[in-house]
Design a protein around this nucleic acid. Structure first.
Length: 426
RNA sequence: GGUGGAGUGGGAGAGUGGCUGAAUCCACCAGUUUGCUAAACUGGCGUGCGGGUAACCGUACCGCGGGUUCGAAUCCCGCCUCCACCGCCA
């Protein structure tokens, strides 16, 4: 979430930013609400501190009186302290309520988009930041979509997934499973070479963790929830991996922190159906390798570029046609300041599929997580957090299968052959 | 799951009602000394919030939440976590 002080001192900037997210005048009232509540909070805090100071002073006096044997005077003072206690307790409750109200308001305010973010309503207004320069692959009419190829070559089975779990839980088998495993290892090795430390995190997280990266309360319906144990299945490795640094104060020399991890990701995707979600296009469980960085605020946009380069490298090595979008304000995630989406071209479906999302959250997550560093003056400052998919498997698999189909079988990209130990699926 | 023990500052560890935001040691930072390093010595060394240009002052925090008391790290209750043993188990 944003810091109230930031809203207070950069109000114009905040307003302009929220306009890009199509906030109207009514929505913008949240800002004044927050500032007002913060004013209230401050004055209550001052009053409360004064009451407590009096109480502490009196209590000390009573202690001294007892020691001097003046029990009568001491007892006489007690009623005054009791009075102070009562009023300070009321104040404390006031303060708690006000702080809670303030937090609730702040939770409704999304991150301020970066200057470069275009204004817009929906994904249709996203900017094509880097288009595919070469001709897009064209398949002949006999080409099959990946779900047909999967049947032909026995790579994954959606019906079996339904039998075992339900719709949207694919079961991979044979060379399909091996391809999956090869991609995971390939992506992890690439991340390792780029300097990321590998993490295998828990796949279920508690409420504080889900709150830290912003999945709660904004996207509660998106996550599977294990009610008995009050735990959430992770929608992305970003959640457990970034939260490694929750409540941590770093030194400037610790930057950049670079972490990567492979995990399955679980998403409820409530209400999704239709042709666009066929096959592996949108599923409830998929595999993803995530890269996370924690960086000094002055360097975080260089880092974002570095992460874009990393993902570009993966796409290039897999010989997949792709383009990069800069998300507009309306499509930008609640917690993000700037997001680039990578889309791979799926030649049989003749459409672009999102396979990576690389974002800078600036201090939005770190404020929630209390992830800070000490600056040159030894003062604590919020760090910047970034993450990106490198990459999401299901759709990459879909694109590889479709784009590489030949009359003799499906060709495995060169870079992957060392991992699959076969060069064709036939 | 059962029984017992424990949770204090970056780490170790003292503290069983007021003199404790917290001894001491280690680590860390600055300085003195020194040919360099080391050693020794001196000083500094938590976080949030409020007030103040600042020095600084006030307040809260000793796993978390409540309670008792004029006053709680210290007493009471609930919860969480860790350790040990037992049971179960990949």
């Amino acid at each position: 979430m944003l810091q109230v002080n930031y809203i207070r001192t950069n109000k114009e900037k905040v307003i302009n930013g929220l306009r890009k997210r199509m906030f109207n005048d009514e929505d913008l009232k949240l800002l004044d609400e927050a500032i007002l509540l913060d004013d209230k909070r401050k004055s209550i805090q001052t009053e409360l501190d004064q009451l407590l100071a009096q109480r502490n002073k009196r209590s000390k006096e009573i202690g001294d009186l007892f020691k001097q044997g003046k029990a009568d005077e001491a007892n006489a003072s007690k009623s005054k302290v009791a009075e102070l206690k009562e009023t300070s307790e009321t104040k404390q409750k006031d303060l708690n309520t006000t702080m809670q109200q303030l937090t609730e308001v702040l939770y409704k305010i999304p991150n301020i988009p970066h200057d470069s973010v275009p204004k817009g309503n929906s994904d249709e207004d996203n900017e094509v930041f880097q288009d595919w320069k070469n001709p897009l692959p064209v398949l002949d009419d006999s080409a099959l979509p990946h779900w047909e190829l999967a049947k032909q070559y026995n790579l994954f089975d959606l019906e079996l997934g339904v039998k075992i779990t339900g719709a949207g839980f694919p079961l991979y088998r044979g060379k399909g499973a091996k391809l999956q495993r090869a991609l995971i290892n390939f992506f992890l090795d690439e991340a390792h070479q780029a300097g990321y430390e590998e993490i295998i995190p828990p796949l279920l997280v508690n409420e504080a963790t889900a709150r830290g990266t912003g999945q709660l309360p904004d996207k509660e319906g998106q996550m599977y929830y294990a009610e008995k144990d009050d735990l959430y299945l992770i929608p992305t490795a970003e959640v457990p991996i970034t939260n490694v640094y929750r409540d941590v104060i770093l030194d400037e020399k610790d930057f950049p922190v670079k972490l990567t991890g492979y995990t399955p990701c679980f998403r409820r995707e409530a209400g999704s159906y239709g042709a666009h979600v066929r096959g592996l296009n949108r599923v409830h469980q998929f595999d993803k390798i995530e890269i996370v960085q924690i960086q000094h605020p002055e360097k975080s946009y260089d880092t974002l570029n570095e992460m874009l380069d990393h993902v570009r490298g993966l796409m290039d090595k897999l010989d997949l046609p792709y383009r990069i979008l800069r998300l507009c304000g309306g499509d930008l995630g609640f917690t993000s300041a700037l997001t680039f989406d990578f889309e791979v071209y799926s030649a049989a479906q003749k459409r672009w599929l999102e396979v990576s999302s690389v974002s800078n959250f600036e201090t939005f997550q770190s404020n929630r997580m209390k992830l800070r560093y000490r600056d040159a003056n030894r003062k604590t400052q919020l760090a910047h957090t970034l993450n990106g998919s490198a990459l999401a498997l299901a759709r990459i698999v879909a694109a590889i299968l479709e784009n590489n189909q030949t009359p003799n079988g499906i060709a495995i990209p060169k870079a992957l052959q060392a991992y699959t130990r076969f060069d064709i699926i036939d």
